[in-house]
Amino acid sequence: MDLKIKLAGITFENPIWVASGTFGTKGQEFEDFIDFAQVGAIVTKTVTLLPREGNPPPRVVETRSGLLNSIGLPNKGINSFVSKELPELKKMPTKIIVSIAGTSLKDIEKMIKKIPENIMPDAIELNLSCPNVTHGKTKYKLTAQDPQATEKMVKIAVGTAKCPIIAKLTPNVTDITEIAKAAKKAGAQAVSLVNTYAGIAIDVEEMKPVLGNVVGGLSGPAIKPLALKAVRDVYNSVDIPIVGIGGIVGGVDVAEFMLCGAGAVQVGTANLIDPDAHKRISKEFEKYLILKGIKKASGLTGKLKGGRTA
């Protein structure tokens, strides 16, 4: 079985990665459960220019087959990240994708410049879409809700970085293909979709929102059909590699995203249920490929048959 895939010019041993914010800062919480060499790539918790303490609790609440979170990107800032975490991450036997977010073009440029060349990550995922923080300099709340803002930010990242840029997009838009087109135009080597869907959970006893930040981002199996549609829409209209994300909890889910056009996928919420989820999902995915007589995982991308949308 050949699980290798090529995406954004990089060869990954496995198309199944782990998503930002669901795998700790450097995966240490998972070392008792997972052989990191089997993980396609680790996408780090999003780093920002300055330290952030995160949003007020409660930060997480379960909803029907979903997890609503408003963590708010707590992190120690890029300086601490490049001096402490990144050198350790680079020693891990897998691909490292550093997730960064910023409120201005200058932030992004400064952050990328702070990454030393000798510990350059394999790629940078530009988080343009965290629903739990406010992104600056756009008329919308999130950069990835604005095609122009997306284009500008991706452009500065691509121009500054010495590694590929993957733009992480929000599904909270009228037409995600427009944003993907803007990211491609600006030189992004791939897009990852989707970030969480904005939502609210209510405590009827107290008659108030559950989350400290009122609004959170929904992830988990509840959003999978929505995420699949986003992937298919972008695959059908923009020529750019796609990393599919949204509610993957089993090997068949991976296949679904790849059939819709994803070249790779990220497992997120499932890591928070079972720290060894990646291992099981990979095994199930291999089983699916064997059952279908598919020898190369990469052969699955975009192979969804037929069907027309009214």
């Binding site: 919480e29 963590i71 928070l272």
Partner: peptide, 16 residues
């Protein structure tokens, strides 16, 4: 506190 992973990965169960 409301909690998800239980192992310190998601940073969901913040206590001030």
């Amino acid at each position: 506190e409301y909690m998800a992973c239980g192992i310190g990965a998601c940073m969901g169960c913040a206590i001030k």
